[in-house]
Design a protein around this nucleic acid. Structure first.
Length: 464
RNA sequence: GCUCCUUUCGUCUAGAGGCCCAGGACAUAGCCCUCUCAAGGCUGUAACACGGGUUCGAAUCCCGUAAGGAGCGCCA
C-alpha cells in the first residue's frame, strides 16, 4: 500500500449472537475507519470448527447491516485460509521458532491444576520443548498427534503503545509457550489473528480489553514472521449495572433480541457511542455524524456500565425522529392484521410520539378498537367525581357534533359548566382508561364517535 | 497464585499540578408552559474509593490498601 490510510476490522467468531460489547467494538472500528475515510474489513474467525456455525455468521452480518455498519471488500473466513496459515507456519518451523508438542489436553489440564494448587501461574511447563528426534518419533509412535507451540524467549521485554492505555510492557519470562497450531492442523487464534491483520493491511485494531495481556503473544509472532503489526487500542469492557460482567444472568440482551423488541438502530448506536467514548455531542445523531465526532483520543480507560434507562432515553428520541411512514412500519406488527392501511396509518400517526416500543401499542389498540378500558382506583375516583350527568352530557355532545372536537367540548362546557382540566381529565379517563396519551381531539377521531358514545353512556349508567 | 487493567455526581463522562470548595449530558426534584403525557424553558439536589507521601499548591505525580475486571486454554 502506497499511502496507508487507516484500515480497521471487526473479527467476530460465529459462535453466538452479537451482544452489546461486540456491537460496540464493531461500531468503534467502523467509526474510526469512516472518520478517516479508511476501510473497514469484516473477517469471520471460524477456526473453531466445533463451535462455529454458519447461522451465526449470517446473523452477525444481518446485525451489522441493521446497525448501519457496512464493510469493505470481501469477507474473509479463516476456515478457508488453511494454505496461508500453513505457509507461515512452515516459515516459523524452518526458523526454529516453533516446536511440536505431544502433550495431550488431559496432561495439560492436570499440569495446570497442579501449578494452580501450588500457587504458580498455570503455564505450559515446556515438557516437549527440548525433545530430540528419537523422543519425537517415539511419541508419534504412541499415536499422539502433535500441536505446534511457539518458543517464547526466556527473557526480554515486550513493549508497545496502546491507543487507549498508553505504554505497555510485559515480561517475556511470564509467558508460557503457546499453541499456534492445533492437533487437527488448524491455526490457533493468536497466530491466525495477527497474520490475517497483517496480510489484509489492517492498521488499527480496536478490541476488547480481554486481549490486552495477550497482545504480547501476538507481537512475538509478528516479530518472528517480520509482520507489520497494527496499532492496538483496548476498549474497556461494558459491565452490568452492578459493575459485574455483562451476562445473560443480568438480562443482557443480544442485539437481535433488542432489535426484535423494537429498539431502533439509531438508539443503540447513539448509546454505544457514549459508552467508553467521551463526546461533547449530546444530541441524537445519525451514524455519519457520529463518525465525524469519533476520536480515538477520547476513548475511555475505565469500564462503562450498561444503563437500560439511558438506552430508553435514546430510544425515545429515535422514535420521535421517525417519519410517519417509518413509524407505521415500526409498529405495524403490533397492529391487527385485519386493519386496513388507512386506519393503520391514522393509528400510527396518532400514537407515534407516545410509544417507546411497538409493544406499547397493544394497549392503545385495545383502547381504540377493542372493549372499553378498565379503570384503576385513581381513575374511578376521577370518574365518580365527575358524576353520571357529566358523561351523559359528553355522550350527547358527541352525538350532536360527531368528532368535531371544538364543538363537542364547547357543548359539554356549556352543559356542565366544567372547563379546563375539570373537563378534560375525566373525559380522557373515560375514553382511554389512562391519564396520559395523545391529544384528545385526535383520539376521539380515531376512537370514532359511535364507540365514544357507547363508552360514555355505559360509564354514565354504571356509576349512576 | 502470578501478570496486567480500572476506580470523579444515580449513570455516561470532562479534567494531563494552580483556570476545580470539580464542568457537561442523561436520570431525578421543583417551577413555568399545558386537557394529560411528551417536548420546550428555568432552578435545584448530587461525585474526586481509602491511607500515606512529593509540592507553596494534587482529582491530576509517587507508594500502599481496598474494590471490581481481564489474562495465564488444542475459546476467540
Amino acid at each position: 500500500m502506497i499511502h496507508p490510510s487507516i484500515t480497521t476490522r471487526f473479527a467476530p467468531s460465529p459462535t453466538g449472537e452479537l451482544h452489546l460489547g461486540n456491537a460496540r467494538t464493531a461500531l468503534f472500528n467502523w467509526l474510526l475507519a469512516e472518520h478517516n475515510g479508511g476501510r473497514f474489513l469484516l473477517r469471520i474467525e471460524d477456526s473453531d470448527a466445533e463451535r462455529s456455525k454458519p447461522k451465526f455468521t449470517k446473523q452477525i452480518m444481518e446485525d451489522l447491516q441493521w446497525l448501519g455498519l457496512s464493510w469493505d471488500g470481501e469477507i474473509l473466513a479463516q476456515s478457508q485460509r488453511g494454505a496461508v496459515y500453513r505457509e507461515a507456519l512452515d516459515k516459523l518451523e524452518r526458523a526454529g521458532r516453533v516446536y511440536p508438542c505431544y502433550c495431550t489436553p488431559l496432561e495439560i489440564e492436570v499440569s495446570r491444576k497442579l501449578q494452580l494448587a501450588s500457587g504458580r501461574p498455570p503455564r505450559y511447563a515446556g515438557t516437549c520443548r527440548t525433545l530430540n528426534d528419537s523422543e519425537r518419533t517415539a511419541k508419534l509412535a504412541e499415536g499422539r498427534k502433535p500441536t505446534l507451540r511457539f518458543k517464547v524467549p526466556d527473557s526480554g521485554l515486550i513493549e508497545f503503545v496502546d491507543l487507549v492505555h498508553g505504554e505497555q510492557r510485559f515480561e517475556s519470562a511470564d509467558i508460557g509457550d503457546f499453541i499456534v497450531q492445533r492437533a487437527d492442523g488448524s491455526a490457533a487464534f493468536f497466530f491466525s489473528n495477527v497474520l490475517d491483520d497483517a496480510l489484509s493491511g489492517v492498521t488499527t485494531v480496536l478490541r476488547g480489553e480481554d486481549h490486552l495481556s495477550n497482545t504480547s503473544r501476538q507481537l512475538l509472532i509478528a516479530t518472528a514472521l517480520e509482520l507489520k503489526v497494527p496499532t492496538y487500542g483496548h476498549l474497556s469492557l461494558i459491565t452490568a449495572a452492578d459493575g459485574s460482567p455483562l451476562s445473560k444472568r443480568h438480562g443482557a440482551k443480544s442485539l437481535r433480541e433488542l432489535r426484535e423488541q423494537g429498539y431502533l438502530p439509531k438508539a443503540l448506536v447513539n448509546h454505544l457511542f457514549r459508552l467508553g467514548h467521551s463526546s461533547d455531542l449530546h444530541d441524537l445523531l445519525d451514524i455519519q455524524k457520529l463518525a465525524v465526532g469519533f476520536k480515538p483520543a477520547h476513548l475511555v480507560r475505565s469500564p462503562a456500565r450498561f444503563d437500560p434507562v439511558q438506552l430508553e432515553v435514546w430510544q425515545r428520541q429515535a422514535v420521535h425522529a421517525l417519519s410517519s411512514d417509518e413509524a407505521l412500519a415500526w409498529m405495524r406488527p403490533q397492529l391487527p392484521d385485519t386493519l386496513d392501511s388507512a386506519s393503520a396509518g391514522a393509528f400510527a400517526s396518532v400514537f407515534h410520539q407516545n410509544l417507546l416500543l411497538p409493544s406499547d401499542a397493544a394497549y392503545w389498540v385495545q383502547v381504540v378498537f377493542g372493549e372499553p378500558p378498565e379503570h384503576d382506583a385513581e381513575g374511578i375516583k376521577l370518574i365518580r367525581c365527575a358524576g353520571p350527568a357529566f358523561f351523559k352530557a359528553a355522550a350527547a355532545a358527541i352525538r350532536m357534533h360527531g368528532t368535531d372536537w371544538k364543538a363537542v367540548t364547547t357543548a359539554i362546557r356549556e352543559q356542565t359548566g366544567r372547563k379546563g382540566p375539570e373537563l378534560f381529565k375525566p373525559l380522557r379517563q373515560a375514553l382511554t382508561g389512562r391519564h396520559d396519551g395523545p391529544e384528545l381531539a385526535r383520539l376521539l377521531k380515531i376512537i370514532t364517535a359511535a364507540r365514544a358514545i357507547a363508552r360514555l353512556e355505559r360509564l354514565s349508567s354504571a356509576i349512576a
